[in-house]
């Protein structure tokens, strides 16, 4: 089944649209009477999108949703997604792939904040940049992303992979402040630069192929180590938190 949703022009284009119904399972089970929210107004899906559905699917994994047009303010797409595929041709709003457990989301443009929040499984690939709290948790939660893969080909914002507790996060560009803060498990890889990486880390592994600025002073330098042909400095920490995490860094600079 191929579902094509094209965003219609709106009178108030900045108001966010909450569209958690846009997941493959929704279209696999029922295509009538779907609604989204614009602020406090509940609207039929067709008021915001022009909808085209072709063919049928034998399972949720046979459903592919394509989103066209300006979807930068469409929130919660792929929330609780448990199979199938979503392809966003442009940018996507906040909370894309929240709590996702299976399937694949591909974003051709940029993703707003909280991409893959508390994700359990599946794959998200963002070919642009991601906002703050990419692959992170929710306010007050002790554990964030627990499984699956988030790959960002551009940059990621502050607090990327905050409270990461499982799965894999790869940022091909730079990450903002405090990437991997309060990380507990899983693997974080940053190909570019970041700052204050993995503060208060208590478990898991992180690799920074660029430079860590404002390096946290409470990581113990273990020595040089070669990983995948690249030479890193290996750190253990965060000692301030009795941490047992491992941090591999190509270059680092303390704020001394």
């Amino acid at each position: 089944m191929k579902v094509t949703l094209e965003v219609r022009p709106r009178r108030k284009p900045h108001l966010p649209i909450e569209a958690e119904k846009i997941v493959p399972r929704t279209f696999f089970e029922e295509t009538d009477g779907l609604s989204v929210f614009r602020g406090n107004k509940e609207l039929a899906l067709e008021e915001i999108f022009s909808v085209a559905i072709e063919g049928e699917a034998a399972s949720v994994d046979g459903v592919e949703i394509t989103i066209l047009g300006d979807s930068s303010r469409i929130k919660r797409v792929g929330e609780y997604m448990d199979g199938g595929r979503i392809h966003v041709m442009g940018d996507i709003g906040m909370h894309c792939g929240n709590f996702m457990s299976a399937g694949e989301i591909v974003i051709d443009g940029n993703a707003d904040a909280w991409l893959g929040r508390e994700m359990r499984g599946g794959t998200i690939r963002c070919h642009g940049s991601a906002g703050d709290f990419c692959a992170a948790g929710y306010r007050g939660e002790k554990r964030g992303m627990r499984g699956g893969t988030v790959e960002v080909f551009g940059d990621a914002g502050d607090f990327t992979a905050e409270t990461l507790a499982g799965g894999t996060v790869i940022v091909h560009g730079n990450a903002g402040d405090l990437a991997g803060v309060d990380m507990k498990d899983g693997v974080l890889t940053i190909m570019g630069d970041t700052s204050m990486a993995c503060a208060n880390m208590s478990g898991g592994r992180a690799y920074v192929h660029g430079t860590v600025y404002d390096m946290i002073p409470t990581f113990r330098n273990i020595g040089r180590e070669t990983v995948g042909g690249d030479v890193f400095t290996r750190f253990a920490g965060d000692i301030a938190n009795r941490g047992k995490g491992t941090l591999f860094i190509r270059n680092y600079k303390y704020m001394d």
Binding site: A199, P217, T218, N221, D238, A240, N241, Y254, D256
Partner: peptide, 24 residues
């Protein structure tokens, strides 16, 4: 943040690993 982390480590008796100067 760095200074607070350093203070926590010193309170825990791990001051030996702190650089000679932290954020000035």
């Amino acid at each position: 943040y760095a200074v607070l982390s350093a203070l926590r480590a010193i309170v825990r008796g791990k001051g030996d690993m702190i650089p000679p100067s932290v954020a000035g």
